[in-house]
Design a protein around this nucleic acid. Structure first.
Lengths: 125, 125, 125, 125
DNA sequence: GTGGTCTAGACCACG
DNA sequence: GTGGTCTAGACCACA
C-alpha cells in the first residue's frame, strides 16, 4: 500500500509522510491504529531506517502520530494536541485552492474529473 | 498564476516545471505564446535566476518549450518532438500521485475526504 | 554564547534548539539576524553537522527560523507563519506554570529568586 | 503534583528524578516521608514500572532516598552521604540551564522576557 | 524489540 | 559555499 516512487522528485521522506497522511485521510489508517515499526517499514520500502524514523518523528511533532518507546507508533486522534485547526472559512479557501491545483495538474496529464473521483472513492476506508 | 510554495518539500525547480506544464495543458499558455524572460519570472517568483534558467532549459530539452536567442522562450507545438499523450500506466501513476498529494494536504489542513468529494462533485457540471 | 552541556541528560539537539530560542527570547538574536552556518556551528560546538541541521530544520518547521538554500538561516519574525499563538489567558496560565516549575527547581538547587532575575536581566539584548 | 511531559525531549527518568528532588527541596516531601510505591507512581504517571524503579534506585545510590525492603522508600536526611549543598560553579551551571529552559519554553509559548520578569518581580514580596 | 540520538561521510539543490 | 537528503552503523532509553 505504501510505495515510494523514485521518479518523483519529491524527497523520499516527504513521499512517505504524504502517503501516511493520505492513508489516514482515506480512513485506511484509523485513529489509534498501530503503524509498522520503523525497522519494518524501512525494510518494506527498501529505505534506510533513519529515513523512516525521520518521517515518524516529524509526523509526531505535527500531532499526527504518537510514538511510544518500546511499544510502537500509533495514529493520534486529532484534537489531542493543541494544533489549532484553521477556521472554517480558511479551510474552505484551502479546499478550493487544493482542488484548483489538482484539476490543473490532472488536466495537464490527461486525467479527467471522473478518474479522480473514482480514485478517491476507492481509497475510502 | 504561477506560485511557488517554499514550505513544499518538492524542489523549487520541479514546482515551476510542473506549473508551466499545467498552464500549457490548461490552455492558459497557448501554443506559440511567449513566456516571461528568465529574469522576469525569477523576480516574480522571488527565486534565483539560475533556478528558472534550469527549468526553461530542461523543458526545452523535453520539447515543451522553444528558446530563440535574443527573442524569448515560447510554447512549442506538441507532436514531433514531445511524446504525445502520457501512456496509460503513466497516467495511472500520476493519478495516484495527485490524489495522494491532495489527501495529504487536505489532512494537514483539517479537511476530510467527504469535503473533497463534495467539492469535486459540485464541479462536475 | 551557545554551549552544550554534556552532563545534561537533555539530547544535544534539544539543548541547541533551546539555546537558540533563548537567544531569540532574550533579544540577542534579533529578527532577521543570520545564524551561523550549519557547518560553522557544528564546528564550534564540536558536534556533527547533521545534528545542527536537525535543529535548524526543526526550528524552521516550528516557524522560528527561515532557511534559504545557498544563502543561510535567519530568525523569522513571528506571525509570518500561521502558527496560531495561544490565547492571552492560555499564555497567562503557561507563564504561571513555567515560573512555578522554575522556582521549584531553583529552590532545590539553592538558587534564589534574586539570582534568577539578575540572570534574566543580564540576558537581555 | 508530579507530572511528566512526554513532549519534553528530556528523558522521562530524568524528569521524574528532577521532580522528586524538587519536591524534597521544596519541603513538599519532608525528610523521612514515604514515597509512593514504584508501581503506584508508575500508574499515576502512566509510565513503565521499570522506569520508576530506575529512578528510585538511582536516587538511592545518590543518597537522596532510602529503600527498606518490604516497607517502602523514604526521603533520607541529607548530610553524611548526600553531598551537602551544590558548589558555586554547580549552582552557576544550574542557574544558566534553568533560565535557558525558561526562556526557550516561554518563547515557544509566545511569552516575552518582559512578561516573565514582571511575573517574577510580583512574586518577590 | 521498539523508538531516539548521534556520528561519519556521500551526494544533491540552489545561489 | 549553504542548506537538504540519504545511507550505514553504533549506542541509548524504555517495555
Amino acid at each position: 500500500m505504501l510505495i515510494v516512487d523514485p521518479t518523483d522528485p519529491t524527497p523520499i521522506y516527504a513521499q512517505i509522510a504524504r502517503a501516511i497522511r493520505a492513508e489516514i485521510a482515506g480512513g485506511r489508517l484509523a485513529i489509534g491504529a498501530k503503524l509498522p515499526t520503523v525497522r519494518q517499514l524501512a525494510l518494506t520500502l527498501r529505505v534506510n531506517v533513519n529515513t523512516v524514523a525521520k518521517v515518524y518523528s516529524q509526523l509526531e511533532r505535527a500531532g499526527v502520530l504518537s510514538a511510544r518507546r518500546g511499544v510502537g507508533t500509533f495514529v493520534r486522534e486529532p484534537g489531542e494536541t493543541s494544533s489549532a485547526k484553521p477556521s472554517a472559512p480558511e479551510r474552505e479557501r484551502m479546499l478550493h485552492q487544493l482542488t484548483e491545483r489538482l484539476l490543473a495538474d490532472a488536466h495537464a496529464a490527461g486525467i479527467t474529473l471522473d478518474d479522480i473521483i473514482r480514485q478517491l472513492e476507492s481509497r475510502r476506508t
